[in-house]
Amino acid sequence: MRTDESAFGRRLMDAVPHVVLILGVLIFAFPIYITLIGSTWDAGTIARGNLPLTPGGEMLDNYARAWNETRGDRIIHTPVRIMMMNSLIMALVIALGKIAISIISAYAVAFFRFPLRMVFFWMIFITLMLPVEVRIIPTYEVVANMGLIDTYAGLTIPLIASATATLLFRQFFLTIPDELVEAAKIDGAGALRFFVDVVLPLSRTNIAALFVILFIYGWNQYLWPLLVTNSGDMETVVIGITKMIGNGEAATDWDLIMATTVLAMLPPVAVVVLMQRWFVKGLVDSEK
């Protein structure tokens, strides 16, 4: 029965990609699953190291305490609702701020000719090469001297200039046909009117894509908020988790920490999954 044998062999070969891909999916899902489970048990069960692989009964209690209270059994923390609000404000201001200042500066560079145009362009361009981490200490000093420590302004504005977004918008603007601009001029639209009536609506997809990427960038900031926030009221949730963990002894409020971790993951993961189409396009386009 040779034919059966080779058919079986072929089916086996067809299965290999699925096996590998499912394995990949599991490797990415497993840590999340464990954390989800952990957030439904009490601290004692987790600390003993015998976390079951099925949900426990403490879920509502854990999340409620993490969300509202400042005091666990062993640790003191900023309530997650405050940290989440801080993270949300930071992510939104960074994402929307970057989009706003990038789109208008790209419009200036693409649609006008004026002295020093290329100087400005290159000045924006070289910021590509200076991630915040590289210039962290002097930037911190500038912000400290301006009295912006523990403020939303200090948390967000230094991260708001974006060469990537400016280049992406400029690239897109260069594809808007000249005739469209001329038609608008003949229709009587000036530069600002053209921007509002034509350029902004045409940029919707790009704006959506950038919003996803920049929201995640903002939400996930670590070193910068670590430096410029001291008071608990200004803490972001990503920083908050590691502060709650401290040195990571066995006997700590793991239940609260895991609930907080789940909450911290929710907004960015939701944004990526819900806006997957724009996000993938935007990510790939913005790096061209």
Binding site: G24, P31, T35, Y222, I239, M265, P268, V272
Partner: peptide, 23 residues
């Protein structure tokens, strides 16, 4: 598969570290 493989992009490096710590 694509959807199931791209979402970890959304995680902060620090949060990824915490997940590994739990395990």
């Amino acid at each position: 598969y694509k959807t199931l493989l791209i979402w970890p992009y959304a995680l902060a490096p620090a949060v990824a570290a915490v997940l590994w710590m739990f395990i």
